[in-house]
Simulated scan of single mutants.
Amino acid sequence: MPVMMPTAQTFPDPEGALAGAQFADRYVLTTDGLALTAIGAAERVLGRTPRWVGWLMLLRNLAVRPFGLKTGLERDVLPEGRVGIFPLISQAPGRIVLGLDDRHLDFRLLVEVNDLGAGRQEVAASTIVKTHNLLGRTYLAVVKPFHRIIVPAMLAQVLIK
Results as ranks from 00 to 15, higher is better:
I150L: 05
R148L: 13
V142W: 05
R137P: 07
L134Q: 12
V142A: 09
L109M: 14
A153Q: 09
V143C: 01
A153G: 12
I150F: 01
F146L: 10
P152E: 04
V111F: 10
R108G: 14
I150V: 11
P145S: 03
H104Y: 11
K130H: 15
I128T: 05
G119R: 02
G119M: 02
H147A: 03
E112I: 02
V143L: 04
A141F: 09
L116C: 06
I149H: 11
V143D: 00
T131A: 06
R137C: 04
V113M: 06
L116I: 01
L105M: 15
D106K: 09
N114R: 15
D101Q: 14
V123I: 04
D101L: 12
D106S: 15
V113T: 08
L116M: 08
D102T: 08
T138E: 05
A124V: 02
V111K: 02
L109N: 11
R103L: 09
P152L: 07
R137W: 11
Q121T: 00
T127E: 04
N133V: 00
D115V: 07
R148N: 15
T127N: 04
L109T: 09
L110Y: 03
T138S: 14
F146C: 04
E122A: 11
I150E: 02
D101Y: 09
H104K: 13
V111I: 14
L105E: 12
P152Q: 04
V151L: 12
V129Q: 07
P152A: 07
R148E: 15
F107S: 12
V151H: 01
V123G: 05
A118I: 12
R137D: 11
L135M: 13
N133K: 10
D102F: 04
A156C: 11
L110H: 01
V142L: 13
